Amino acid sequence: MSGYDLVVFDLDGVVYLIDEPIAGAPEAIGRLRSSGTAVAYATNNASRRAPDVAAALTKMGVPAEPAEVLTSAGAAASLLAEKLPAGAPVLVVGADALRAEVRDAGLTPVETAEESPAAVVQGYGPDVGWRVLAEASLAVRAGALWVATNTDRTLPSPRGPLPGNGSLVAVLRTALDRDPDLVVGKPEPALFTTAASLAKAKRPLVVGDRLDTDIQGAVTAGMDSLLVLTGVSTPADLLAATPDRRPTFVAADLSGLFEPADDLRLPAKPAAGWTLTREGDSATLDGSGDPVAALRLLCVAAWDGESLHAGSDAARDLFRAWSL
């Protein structure tokens, strides 16, 4: 951490799962704060406002201020306020938090296409159903600007991935046969660049659990990133990652923030207990040891397009666990 002056955390799958803190996360963030490193939280989840997120984090043992939290709901409302005249009607698909952000931005939340909305803003909400999606479809067909807070296909949970806003956006995409006009949240870089600007940070680090949002957003923003394996993206996903979705570092969880950078960096240096033999277009993993160290080592070969093989019992166990 000595090389960074700000850490921007994703929340779902990094700090907590739904409303339960991930083991070790409060302690890791507390240690980071004690060292004097600034922190921020950037979430695509549009179902809570910044003060509510900060209060929930504090209750979990992660002290946070509303000013440290950036949400896709707030960013979407700000964007609409820049594009539309004051008081313009906006059809809101999502939770009450998104509706409140739209209202606070000086716009008028509406519920039906008959109210001639100038825009439709769509974010995650656990109670979003067919009726409001139908109204949104009619409004977009009539010419309303369609803005999505984010397009995460899933949300992490203790029971496994659940449908996210991207799945709900897909309903309208299918009905309308087109994409949203604008997507505000990650992988767009705005949440990260705003966090860095507010903190006056010159060397920020992004921490996330999703390659297609957190890590891609960091790459787009030109920031280093740490992928933790406590949420959505799996080892198999990392091995198949395209260059625009490859993190700077990978760790099992937030304890990686306090490990030597070179031990976590990708492509990896030789890992204790593991050997990787590369011949032609294939690579064989032998030995045993830390699973994440093996994963970092395998990235070297996988990203070069080589086929991966297990040469020891421990390696075969990992391959089975990772569905390779």
Rank of each mutant, 00 (worst) to 15 (best):
R103N: 13
D5K: 03
T149M: 07
P243I: 04
R103T: 14
A221N: 06
D10T: 04
L155G: 00
V250R: 03
V147S: 02
A190L: 14
S35R: 15
P243V: 03
L98W: 00
A236V: 11
E114R: 15
A46S: 12
L257F: 05
P291L: 13
D104M: 02
Y41W: 10
G143Q: 07
G280I: 09
L145W: 04
M223P: 10
E115G: 07
A315D: 10
V228M: 01
L176D: 04
K83S: 13
A118K: 14
D237F: 07
G222Y: 05
G287D: 06
A136K: 05
A144H: 00
F249E: 03
L229A: 02
G311R: 06
R296P: 08
R99V: 13
A105R: 01
S157G: 14
D214F: 02
L285I: 05
P66H: 03
G143Y: 08
R33M: 10
P187F: 01
G36Q: 01
R265G: 10
A283M: 03
H309Q: 15
P187A: 01
S34C: 13
L17V: 08
F319A: 14
E135H: 07
L176P: 02
A302C: 08
F319P: 10
E259P: 11
Q216G: 10
G123F: 04
V39M: 08
R103A: 15
D179E: 15
A95C: 12
G289H: 04
L254Q: 02
V39R: 04
T275K: 09
V219L: 00
W130K: 00
A218V: 06
D262M: 10
D96T: 15
V292H: 09
P26L: 00
L138R: 09
R278D: 13
C299T: 12
P267M: 06
L198R: 15
L145I: 09
M1E: 13
G24A: 02
K83V: 15
G13H: 02
P189Y: 03
